[in-house]
Every structure is written in C-alpha cells, then in structure tokens.
C-alpha cells in the first residue's frame, strides 16, 4: 500500500517537502514506514529519536497501519 507521511520542522527541511509517499506491505507498522522514509531521505538516515503520530495522536513504532491513517514523523518537540 502507498502511505503519505507528513514531515515537520527539521525533517521537513531535510526532505525539502512537507510530505513523502512511500510503498509498504499491507499491515506494515509505523517503524516500517519510517525505514522507507529514511531510505528516501539520506540526511535522516541516522536519526535516533523520531516521534510518530497516527491520526494526530502519538503512536509507537509497533502500531500496525490500515493505510487510511494520517501519519506524521517529527523530531522531539521544543515549543514554549
């Protein structure tokens, strides 16, 4: 399935685009999606602390996807 992944802050700058589409097997997890994203964007290859969200709520890498979620990956937050 093809999933679209929103990127924010430094990850968005690194990618040069607000979102990327990646191809993953059915029932793939967020961690699988992140692996594909990193493969596409070389400067993110060594990122160790990505945060994931699924439908605008934090989710862990082992979350299995249906392909219909709004998915985002981003660095640790620093608002305030």
């Amino acid at each position: 399935m093809t999933v679209s992944v929103l990127l924010f802050a430094r990850y968005r700058e690194a990618a040069g685009t607000p979102s990327v589409e990646v191809e993953v097997p059915a029932n793939a997890t967020l961690a699988d999606v992140w692996d594909r994203v990193r493969a596409r964007i070389p400067s993110l290859r060594r990122e160790e602390r990505p945060m994931f969200s699924c439908d605008r709520a934090y989710a862990r890498g082992d979350r299995a996807l249906t392909g219909h979620e709004e998915i985002a990956v981003f660095p640790p937050v620093s608002g305030g």
Binding site: Y58, V77, G79, G80
Partner: peptide
Amino acid sequence: KEIVPIWK
C-alpha cells in the same frame, strides 16, 4: 513543552 508538536 514535553508533548505539544511545536518546534523552535
């Protein structure tokens, strides 16, 4: 500061 997805 811990959890809201905002970056500086």
